[in-house]
């Protein structure tokens, strides 16, 4: 019965909360209160916005030595997670059957293991940094820890399910994903989407002043 609930109603509820929540949140940003800058621009705001959306994928070179842990761990985690999400064979099969109607090549087993190790290593390093570094310790909120913990659980149960250590793990993984999806729109996990308008706002501000940010 619990299995039916997790595979059935809870799955659809979590998807609905996720999609409606994310769209609602993005709408509050896209259609939210904005002020028009009346000063004469020196250069194009739009060009600045597009530039910054992409330029911030790379850290400032001069600061790299001070922030290398966040940068390297951040890339390990995000790239590893993306690989697991979109190139693990069960995920491709799931997306094909339930949403997309087409599939693509999955990662070979060894690559999956490497991606998982990258993702775990990155996440654990970032979490340790959050807990131990005086700056991140001060500025982190309960929400940051909950987001990290949920992501960790989703990844862990996912890997265990894939390795098929026991059959109930698939159900546990799905349940953790559902909790993750429900929590997502109300948390900073939203940065996965809102980093784009954030960078665009700042890039436009700098862009109209003729500054490459």
């Amino acid at each position: 019965m619990i299995a039916n609930f997790i595979d059935g109603p809870l799955w659809y509820v979590s998807l609905a909360v996720f999609f409606i929540g994310v769209l609602w949140k993005l709408a509050t940003i896209v259609f939210g209160k904005k002020t028009t800058d009346l000063s004469q621009p020196r250069a194009s705001a739009a060009v600045g916005a597009w530039r910054t959306i992409f330029s911030r994928f790379l850290p400032d070179r001069g600061m790299f030595s001070e922030i290398k842990l966040q940068v390297i761990a951040g890339y390990l985690f995000h790239l590893g997670l993306l690989a697991l999400m979109f190139f693990a064979a069960p995920h491709i099969r799931f997306l094909d059957e339930h949403f997309l109607g087409f599939s693509w090549s999955a990662l070979p087993h060894w690559a999956f293991i490497v991606a998982a190790q990258f993702a775990f290593l990155g996440l654990i390093l970032l979490w340790l940094q959050r807990l131990l570094n005086p700056v991140t310790k001060l500025i982190s909120t309960a929400g940051d820890h909950i987001s990290t913990l949920l992501t960790f659980v989703v990844m862990l149960t996912g890997c265990l399910a894939l390795l098929e250590s026991f059959s109930g793990l698939r159900l546990i993984h799905r349940f953790s994903v559902e909790i993750f999806l429900i929590y997502f729109p109300f948390s900073r996990l939203m940065h996965a989407f809102t980093f784009i308008p954030s960078r665009a706002f700042t890039g436009a501000w700098f862009g109209r002043r003729g500054i490459r940010s």
Partner: peptide, 10 residues
């Protein structure tokens, strides 16, 4: 947008 995006990376 800014507060929603901040991941408190420091």
């Amino acid at each position: 947008s800014f507060f929603t995006s901040c991941i408190h990376c420091g």
